[in-house]
Structures are given as structure tokens and as C-alpha cells.
Design a protein around this nucleic acid. Structure first.
Length: 505
RNA sequence: GGCGGUAUCGUCUAGUGGCCUAGGACGCGGCCCUCUCACGGCUGAAACUCGGGUUCGAUUCCCGAUACCGCUACCA
């Protein structure tokens, strides 16, 4: 057991960071910060075949956007650098050597083809205590043969030698004690001569030990190999300072079965990545939460509740509150299906509580894109009127374009429903009333117009809806006088005139 | 197939033997508010996988079945 809490998030740079990975990182972060500990980013690039350029930068950018700051990382450095496994080759070599010298591991020369042949000819073939005697490895070959093979440059791997018949206990913070008999484990490859790199299992154990990691918080997909990791700690003599484990349930597809995958997002119409990602090879574009108009706080809040809950009815949490409240006792054990509607609702909630000025700032670029230039103060007022009705910032345009651009057409259904024979005449009257109005405040407009409708015994709904149709182009939007006040007297009259002249029954 | 994990409304979940006629949220329906559309408020439909135990009493504990998920690579 380590005294200081130090956790790590250790993605492999094989593509953009998946939203499930973000949740894993978030739980790591919350746990570390709650205990005043360290949050470390380590890049696990031990698979040279699958390395994707740009992926590491993407990961750092994503966490920056989300506001989850690392204490140590490849870009930031730290006491235990390097934080990129490809730069730690010599370190691993040392421990591979040690394991070999101890007789806890051995060299295996079987080719992939030979292994494949074994797997197809023997069902449930597993490279272990019972089968390794029939394979080509340093246990079955003579010392001279092994030496000449290595010297001749033959490719080999190093396998961990698992002793059968031993119960291995993994103590998991979420699942309690999981016991697995070593006989079901196979002699996993821990090092490959081809690229001189260890596999995940060894690199992970060595680094966690060397970096003083106290808690390994990762996805459930690692649970089956946790006993192997315990075995590795034991073989290296590090069992006393072994980290505690917590295996998080997986994020599942919203529909059907299986874990959420990179392809699900755009197929189902929602992002699975924090940031937009362009595949460097195919040029394929995957959407991101940031680009879709999500606020990072909303994403964090939503993710935090997918697998953890506070035990009461509260659903909206700041990062600070999450740090205070998070605990593994309240983490779920079962996989959670990703519910996009709920994610939207969280964003809606966050938009509602974001100050108008801030929202206006993020809306300005959207307006610019539409070719609209408007004063920030004006945009702020519009946003204040409209933010309750949208889930995303870009959606603001669909809902409030009429504040910036006069309607060019009128919604057919609304026209049919609202535009009556008497409408043109009524609107002409209204135009006249507006023209004479000196005090154009919403309050005064309401007073005068309501009186006019009352005096003439007009139908309130009819008049107001026709008025709205002229201003907005359809049957939606905030209160009429909020609209007229904002767009102004002249523009209001102009829109009324246009409607009268262009809408025909 | 083998091994492991999990199992409450459609979804996220509360529930740790009696407080459960099972609570909340999203989504869905209705009503109210109202010049419209939203927001908001109220409200409705909607779940303990099955079978055995243990117990005076099981959603809750145990066993089994089933289902789902994961792992089973010289990927992580």
C-alpha cells in the first residue's frame, strides 16, 4: 500500500480518445483530487503497429478542453519522466532480464503461424504449464540451441511462467475480492524482440510500480488480466507495494448490445469523442462534443453520473462538488447504456445556467458563419430571451434567426391557420398605431395595443398570432413585445408592411 | 467453447430483510401557465429475469438456470 494517492490514466495513442476513456480518466481525476493526490497521464505506445500520429496531442487537447488538468504528463513532464512508454525501453529491458534470470519468465521462439496451427488443431489451446513443454522455447530447447537462435537473430518473445494450481486474489474496490486459479491463466507474452518493446502487461506493472501509483482505476475489460498483473507484481517482488485496483463497468451502446465503439456515434447521430477527429489515413471525420455545442461542464456532469451516483436526487454537480462527493462505494457494477437524450438534457441545463454574456460570446462565431454581424450587447439580449429553449449553442440560430434577419417566407401551416380575411386590415391599423407610438417600451406597447384590441372587440389570439407571423415568419418565439422592443419600431413596422403586401389568401 | 463479471421502469439509477401500494431523473402522454413555441409547475403510463432455498418476512442473503457484458493476440 502506498501512502500518497497517485493515479494514472494510460491510453494508447491509437486514435481519438473514446468517451468511455474520458469517464475512466474523470474518475481517476476525481479520486486523486479528493485525496489531494496526483493525476498522471502516461502514453502507452508499446504497439508500434497501431500507433496513430496526432492521437497523443488529441488526448492532451481533449483534457484541456474538459478542464481536467494533469499533474504529470509527457508534455508537462514530472518527477517520473519519461511518460511515454516507447521512451522507457531500457527500463523494461532491465526487468525482463531480471525475470529471465529468476526463472520467472522464458524465451519462446514459436512463430505466429505455429501458434495459429496449434490453436486450430487443439481446441481451447493455451500456452501454459501443460503445453509449453511441447513448444519451442528456452524450457524445451538446450542452452546452446537457445543461444545460437538468439545470436542468429531469430525473432522471439518473452513469456511469463505461470505456476499452475495457485489461487490468485485480486482485491477490487468496486467488486470486492475476485479469485482466479492460476491454472486458467496462460503464459502471456511480456516482451517482443521484434520491436524491443514490452507488451501492455509488463509495461503497465513496471511503470505503475516505478511511478508510485497507488490506485489503478481502469475499465472492466482489464479485470480478466488483473490476476496476471498480480502475478507479475509477485514475480518482481513488489507485491507489498502493489496498487489497489478498481475496475469500472463499461459504457454500452445505446441500442442493442455490446460496448460503445468508435463507429456507433456517427451512425446513431451523436458524438463519441470529446473533440472532432480527422483520421490521418482515411481523412474520415468523426464528430466531437465540443464541435456539437456541448459545454465541457455538461459532458463531465453527464459522464460522472454514468456509473456513479451520490445516493440522493441531485443530478447537477460542479467539478468541485464531484471531487468532494465521489466514492467507489457508490460506483455501479453493471455496464451503462449511453443515453444521448439525457446527455442533451444536461447540456440544456448548463446552457440555462450559463451567464448571457458568456453564451453570447460562443454564439457570435455562429452568427458570423451565417454572415450576420450584430453588437455583442444585442446578442446578449437575444440569448437571454432564447437560452431556455435550446440544448446547444448552435441551435440558438435556428430559434432566433428572426432577431437578426427578417423572415423571407411565411410558414404555410401557420398562414393557413392564422391569416384571416380581416387580417390585412387589422395589421394596417396596427401599423398606424405603432407609427404614432413615441414610447416604444414593451410595457407601453402592451398597454396601447391591448386597449386597441379590446376597444375594437378583436380576438386577442387572432391579432397577436398574425402579428407574430409577420415578425417571425412562423408560430413560435418569445413574447411579441420582447421581439418588437429588440428589433425596434421601424423594423417591426417594416415586417408588418411586408407581410400585408406578400401574404395572399 | 473456456474463464470472469453483471442482472430494479425503454434508458441512467435509489434501495444493503419489514419504512416498497419500489423513489428520482431522461424520454413519452395529459393538465395548468399562455398571443405562439418553448421554459416552468402539476400529473399519468412504465421495472424488482426465472426457479429453488434461508427466514415469521425477501428487490435486498445463498444456490442454480437464463440473459447480457468482457477477456480468451507477439492490441491496449
Amino acid at each position: 500500500m502506498r501512502e500518497r494517492v497517485r493515479v494514472r490514466f494510460a491510453p494508447s495513442p491509437t486514435g481519438p480518445l473514446h468517451i468511455g476513456g474520458v469517464r475512466t480518466a474523470l474518475y481517476n481525476y476525481l479520486f486523486a483530487k479528493q485525496h489531494g493526490g496526483d493525476f498522471v497521464l502516461r502514453i502507452e505506445d508499446t504497439d508500434s503497429q497501431r500507433f496513430v500520429p496526432g492521437a497523443e496531442q488529441y488526448i492532451e487537447d481533449a483534457f484541456q478542453w474538459l478542464g481536467l488538468e494533469y499533474d504529470e504528463s509527457p508534455s508537462k513532464g514530472g518527477e517520473f519522466e519519461p511518460y511515454r512508454q516507447s521512451e522507457r525501453k531500457e527500463i523494461y529491458h532491465q526487468y525482463v532480464r531480471e525475470l529471465l534470470d529468476k526463472g520467472a519468465a522464458y524465451l519462446a521462439f514459436d512463430t505466429p503461424q505455429e501458434l495459429e496451427a496449434k490453436r486450430t488443431s487443439i481446441n481451447n489451446f493455451q500456452y501454459d504449464a501443460t503445453t509449453r513443454v511441447q513448444m519451442r522455447n528456452s524450457l524445451t530447447l538446450s542452452q546452446e540451441e537457445v543461444q545460437s537462435l538468439v545470436e542468429s537473430g531469430a525473432q522471439y518473445v518473452v513469456r511469463i511462467k505461470i505456476e499452475p494450481g495457485i489461487d490468485i486474489k485480486v482485491n477490487d474496490l468496486i467488486r470486492g475480492e475476485v479469485v482466479i486459479n492460476s491454472s486458467v491463466l496462460d503464459d502471456k507474452v511480456i516482451f517482443k524482440s521484434a520491436d524491443e518493446l514490452p507488451t501492455y502487461h509488463l509495461a503497465n506493472v513496471v511503470d505503475d510500480h516505478l511511478m508510485n501509483i497507488s490506485h489503478v482505476i481502469r475499465g472492466e475489460e482489464w479485470l480478466p488480466s488483473a490476476p496476471l498483473h498480480v502475478w507479475l507484481y509477485r514475480s518482481l517482488g513488489w507485491e507489498d507495494s502493489m496498487p489497489q485496483f478498481a475496475h469500472l463497468p463499461l459504457l454500452l451502446k445505446p441500442e442493442g448490445n455490446g460496448k460503445l465503439s468508435k463507429r456507433d456515434g456517427d451512425r446513431l447521430g451523436f458524438p463519441v469523442f470529446p473533440l472532432q477527429w480527422k483520421d490521418p489515413k482515411t481523412g474520415e471525420l468523426s464528430s466531437g462534443y465540443r464541435e456539437s455545442g456541448y459545454l465541457p461542464e455538461a459532458v463531465i456532469n453527464f459522464l460522472a453520473l454514468l456509473g456513479w451516483n451520490p445516493g440522493n436526487d441531485q443530478e447537477i454537480f460542479s467539478l468541485k462538488e464531484l471531487i468532494e462527493l465521489f466514492s467507489f462505494d457508490r460506483a455501479g457494477k453493471s455496464g451503462a447504456k449511453f443515453d444521448y437524450e439525457k446527455a442533451k438534457w444536461f447540456n440544456h441545463k448548463y446552457i440555462q445556467s450559463t451567464p448571457n454574456g458568456e453564451l453570447a460570446q460562443s454564439f457570435l462565431p455562429v452568427l458570423a458563419e451565417k454572415g450576420v454581424s450584430a453588437k455583442p450587447e444585442y446578442v446578449e439580449k437575444v440569448v437571454g430571451l432564447m437560452k431556455d429553449r435550446v440544448s446547444f449553442v448552435p441551435e440558438l440560430w435556428q430559434q432566433s434567426s428572426f432577431f437578426f434577419v427578417a423572415p423571407t417566407s411565411y410558414d404555410e401551416k401557420t398562414v393557413k391557420k392564422r391569416w384571416k380575411a380581416e387580417s390585412p386590415a387589422q395589421m394596417e391599423e396596427l401599423i398606424a398605431i405603432l407609427q404614432e407610438m413615441d414610447d416604444f417600451s414593451a410595457k407601453n406597447q402592451e398597454k396601447i395595443i391591448m386597449k386597441w384590441i379590446e376597444d375594437k372587440h378583436y380576438h386577442l389570439g387572432n391579432v397577436m398570432n398574425v402579428f407574430r407571423l409577420a415578425l417571425v415568419g412562423e408560430g413560435k418565439g418569445p413574447h411579441i413585445f420582447d421581439i418588437t422592443t429588440l428589433i425596434g419600431k421601424e423594423e417591426s413596422i417594416k415586417r408588418l408592411k411586408k407581410a400585408v403586401s406578400s401574404i395572399n389568401l
